[in-house]
Structure formats: structure tokens, C-alpha cells
Design a protein around this nucleic acid. Structure first.
Lengths: 227, 227
DNA sequence: ACCTGAACACCGTTCAAGT
DNA sequence: ACCTGAACACCGTTCAAGT
């Protein structure tokens, strides 16, 4: 059949997903509406539905796209431990750039574990776990444990991320939270009161990596290299 | 002032939250609408808004209520390790009973870390971590790591939970996922293809506890008891 | 103080009609 | 094949009015 000349601004699934990511970055999940999208793409709602089944699929495609980009072209780091940190950092940075990803990652993975994102993440974290010398029967448990940690941390950092815009809003937010924790009653919350100090001014990325190291350390401790 | 006789069916924040939990259990997060709620409570929308600020606050109150109930009246288990497992199990079972909790927990914790749920969970997991002998400067990192793992696992098990209703739907679901993983190309996904077998027929609760043990083991390994 | 319920502005999705 | 855009059924929230 005759190849047709396409206008450069022709609508396509790719253009729609790209626009969705931009809207999500700017306004968060609740900001992604078909009204905003049709306006931005200068089209009608029906046109979008021609390329995309519904809003959920669009959200999923946006998530898949961002995760794929975050994990692409990654030079393999040195040791398996370094590799795990490198993959974790890629993901952490992606969530920093796209805060809505923190929540959507978990949603997407449990909604469609056969979609591109779940296998991609399982492969990215699983391979270095294998290279750590973990025996094969323990691969699944070890990998899902690391993934659960990463997804949980992602969800926490999602909103936390960059609340204000100035770096100041965050310090004040942590301060207010710490103050609220310290105001709890000593009988019911002795631990929370003591730990509140450590929350003030902590660095999210540092915290994320320290936690990842603990989890990986646990896997190594459970499967010491034979000799 | 004169105490007023109250009709037993008078509207109250508590009755509204209870009704919300029932609706959430039956229809999930998207099923909780003011239409359904007003019908169930035989009242008007405005009446609900008199007791509750908006839908988000209602969702938060439902989450707080269920978490409080799940952690209440818990006899302290034996060792710190057993205590961590016991708290984890309580939460796991609560998510099993209220699948919407898996997602909402993370949302609630990052949206209002000063609300009742965050301190409750930090205290419940933090105390046994302290009793493990973890030095105080490491409390925050260790506790948030365990919490991130638990929240991540919770989010994964949320939808997974009891998809069909019959126990069969789940086995078929795992089977279909495993089959899709095994169909990926060997070059890009060697690990995923090998690990697919282990996903078939795994037990979620067993998996959750095994992961928790790995994380706790990592914390112990990082902070060996002095002597 | 507490409740009613109509009204408002918005949402995702559909679909007959166009090209 | 691809797009338009009005129409539909729904949503959370508000608010004048009642008791």
C-alpha cells in the first residue's frame, strides 16, 4: 500500500505518552486529565482514544517509558554490590525527576506484572543478586525483597521529594514533623520521640542507599560464599 | 449545658468512617463515593461534610482506624526478631482483610507523617529494632528500611491479594505471569526467565516473612552485638 | 449544631459524524 | 484509518435553606 506522507505534528501513541509525562511532571497524577491533554495536543478526546485504550493504560505507558529510559544505556558497574547501588540510584533519580513515579511504580507492577516494567526491574536487580553468589533457589525471595524495599522507599520519597520548590520548604517540613513526633506522649511513643532528632535534616538519597546496603547485606549474610 | 438525647442512628464521624471501611472492603478505593456513602447512611452529602473535611481526610481516617485496630492489644512476643515478625504479620493480615490498605498505607504515611499512622508504625517496628541492640545513631536508618520494605511488600500484595474470590484465580494468575516471563527473549531477560518457575505457586505470606527476615538479618549483620 | 438536597464545575468515556 | 466534538453518566464539593 502507498506510504502516506505524514504531517510532522500527526498524533501518535508516542506523542500522547510524551505529552502525558510532561503533564504528570508539571501537575502530578491528578493533573493528568483528557481536557488538559486534548488542549496541549490540539485535538479531540476521541483522537486520544484511538491510540490509547483509556486513562489507566496511558498512565501505565508513561510509567513504562520513564522506567525504560532510566535503566537504558547503563554501563555495568564493578561489583554486584556496586551494580545494585547503581540501578537503585537510577531509579531514585528518576523518581526525583518524576515524583508521580513513586506511586505509579507499585501500581503498575501489581496491575500488570507481564507489562514491560516488572520484568525490566526484576532483571535489573536480579542479575547482580545472582552474581552475588546467591544460590538459585533463593533468587526469587532475594529479588522480591530488594524490589519491595525499593518500591516502598520510592513511595515514601514520591511526595516528600521536592515539596516547595525552594530547598527551604523541605527543611521546614522535616522540622515540623520532628516537632510533632517529639510532642507525643512518652508512655506510648518513647522510641518515636527519641528517633525524631535523626529525621531532622536527613538526606533522602543517602538514606535510600544506606537502606539498600542493609538489605543487600542481609542477603549476603543469609547466603555466605562457600569455601 | 444540657446533655442532649441522641438517636442511636445519629450521624457521627465514627459511623461515617466505619461505613467508609465497609465500602472500601467491598468495592476498593474507587468504589468509595459520596453517592454510595450517602445512600448507605441514609443522609445527604452535606451531612457527611459536616463531620469530615473531604474525601482524602475520610480515606486517611479509614486507614488510621484499620491500622490502629491491627496493632492494638498485641501481647509482646518473645525476642525482638519474633516481635518484628509479629508486627509484620499483623499488618500483612490487615492488608489481606482490607486490600485497599496496601496502597493507602504509603499514601497516608507520606501525606501526613504527623497523623496517627506514621508514629504508630515507627514505634511498632522501631522498639524491637532498638531491643535488637542496634546503636542509637542507626535507629532511624534501620527503622525506615524495615518500614520501606513492609510498605513496598504491602503495595505489591494489595492487588495480588484475593483477585478472583475462589482460590483458583490466583494460581492461574501466577501461572499466566510465569508463562509471560518465560516467553521473554533469552538475551535481554536471562534472569527473569530462570526465576519465573519460582514465582509459580509461591505463598505470599511466607514470602513476606522471608523477606522481612532478610532485612532484619541485614540490620543485625551491620550491628553485631559487642562483647 | 446538625442536616437536606439541589446546583456547580469537573471528570473519563462513547459515538455518530466527518475526512 | 484517523479525527472531531457534542453528549452521557458520573464525580467531589458547596451552600442556601431548613430544623
Amino acid at each position: 500500500m502507498a506510504t502516506r506522507t505524514r504531517r510532522s505534528d500527526a498524533l501518535s501513541r508516542e506523542r500522547i505518552v510524551d505529552a502525558a509525562v510532561e503533564v504528570l511532571d508539571a501537575s502530578g497524577e491528578s493533573g493528568l486529565t483528557f481536557r488538559v491533554l486534548t488542549e496541549r495536543l490540539a485535538t479531540g478526546a476521541g483522537a486520544i482514544y484511538w491510540h490509547v485504550a483509556n486513562r489507566d493504560e496511558l498512565l501505565g505507558a508513561a510509567t513504562d517509558g520513564v522506567v525504560a529510559a532510566a535503566l537504558a544505556d547503563r554501563p555495568s558497574a564493578g561489583s554486584p554490590e556496586e551494580e545494585l547501588r547503581a540501578v537503585g540510584l537510577r531509579l531514585f533519580d528518576a523518581i526525583d525527576d518524576h515524583p508521580w513515579l513513586g506511586t505509579q511504580l507499585g501500581v503498575q507492577m501489581s496491575r500488570s506484572p507481564t507489562g514491560p516494567t516488572t520484568p525490566r526491574l526484576v532483571e535489573a536487580f536480579g542479575r547482580p543478586i545472582r552474581d552475588l553468589g546467591v544460590p538459585e533457589p533463593a533468587w526469587f525471595t532475594a529479588t522480591t525483597t530488594v524490589l519491595s524495599y525499593v518500591l516502598g522507599a520510592a513511595g515514601q520519597n514520591a511526595v516528600n521529594g521536592r515539596a516547595g520548590g525552594g530547598g527551604l520548604g523541605r527543611a521546614e517540613f522535616l522540622d515540623a514533623t520532628a516537632a510533632a513526633w517529639e510532642a507525643l506522649d512518652e508512655d506510648g511513643y518513647p522510641f518515636v520521640r527519641r528517633v525524631a532528632r535523626q529525621m531532622r535534616g536527613h538526606d533522602d538519597q543517602e538514606q535510600f542507599l544506606a537502606g539498600l546496603d542493609l538489605v543487600v547485606g542481609g542477603i549476603r549474610a543469609a547466603h555466605p560464599p562457600e569455601r
